[in-house]
Write a protein that binds this DNA or RNA. Sequence first.
DNA 1: AATCATATCAACCGCACGCCG
DNA 2: CCGGCGTGCGGTTGATATGAT
Length: 446
Amino acid sequence: MGRHSCCYKQKLRKGLWSPEEDEKLLGHITKYGHGCWSSVPKQAGLQRCGKSCRLRWINYLRPDLKRGTFSQQEENLIIELHAVLGNRWSQIAAQLPGRTDNEIKNLWNSCIKKKLRQRGIDPNTHKPLSEVENGEEKVPADMSNSEKAPGGSKELNLVKAENLKPQVVIPEPKPHLLAAEPYPLEGSPSSIIIGNNDSTTTPTKKFFLDRFVTSHESSTSSCRPSNSEGYFPLQQLNYGTNARLSANPNPSLWFNQNCRPFEMNSEYNTGSISTTLPSMSSSILPAPMGFKPSVSLPSDSPSTGSFSINRVPYWEAGTSSNSSSCNSGSSSSIELQSNNSFFDNSVFSWGLADCSTSDKEARIHSVEGEPEDIKWSEYLQTPFLLPATIQNQTPQPIYSEIKSETQFRTDGSTPWHQNQQQQPPLQASDIYAKDLQRFAAAFGQF
DNA sequence: AATCATATCAACCGCACGCCG
DNA sequence: CCGGCGTGCGGTTGATATGAT
């Protein structure tokens, strides 16, 4: 295993990124966009290969990344999606705003897998371990299409996934929606229907439902408990798993024209997702942003997610308040069935979460983000004064309340954003100081 | 306090694919 | 058609953090 070909030409740095490198890359991309990744390191003055820069941007520096632990809903969604998509992490990530494939992959390998096994579920097949061990799972003849899996086992029987497909409503993409209409809050579990009713619920799904609905009483927290805090609410800007980003020689206007100083290149254009998940309808596609700069401070507008730093606008997702109408135009989407949803209030509490470390992790969760914030502050050598609402934020209960279906409507009439507001209101805790500092570093505003 | 085990996460790597000349 | 190039994806590794003994 040698260096990637692009790294042969010159001695390039590897390993962890330093804050200086982050600053360079962030500053460069925010000013010019990445364009051709291979040229980014040179232009940004980095001793890295373009691939490394791209990875760093996607997995860490992107401003729309959601920080913090995965919520139970996200975990549930990951499991459900994995049952259908297998290890197609990028496609799974496309359904989880602000989450990266790498992040999801890590979560799966480190946590969810284990939880599933503890529950007697084979994470590869999503079937009961006993069934798998007894060899009840016949390998179809066309199993050759299945993904490879570590240890020789099939990570996922994609043939099975194929078999599931007929139960997934796969509409044709609606170009007009892709192009113009704002979407409901994509990525929320409510955005996906797998099966229209119980009669079409897959065996896998039934299994999950049966299993976890009955088991949730004994487990109320997640291995990585989380509410929605820590969600820096830049709506998912599909970072285009398949989008040919560099095709645009003149990356123009990130996010949207109203959102300075960032510009959005094609990577963030909503249309790009159609190449990622052509079977997905617009209802789960990123909204045409509507990001808007704001001059309000977090404490002034805790629910908007928009604020400014020394007049440098930070932005929020253009959380549409009329998403119901938006959603109405995408009724043919893949959506989690509503009344019998895998994510109904019962299932939301099934909690794979029987981790014995829940208390500990809850404690960690309550202060998450701080250590890294300190690092950045140290790096910047400028005390970063968090808004009082951040500094004094009270750790929110991890799962003070399981979302009921009324809070998590699947018809899209209640935006996820609004649902969140029914929880303890999102304060500035949504915004990670690290993110602020990144931009501070990038724009030299501090 | 020291050591070991485990968990977590960032990053690397090879490969596949699409584009383009 | 072919090969080079750039990009994206998924598997894997290695460093670090955390917990247990």
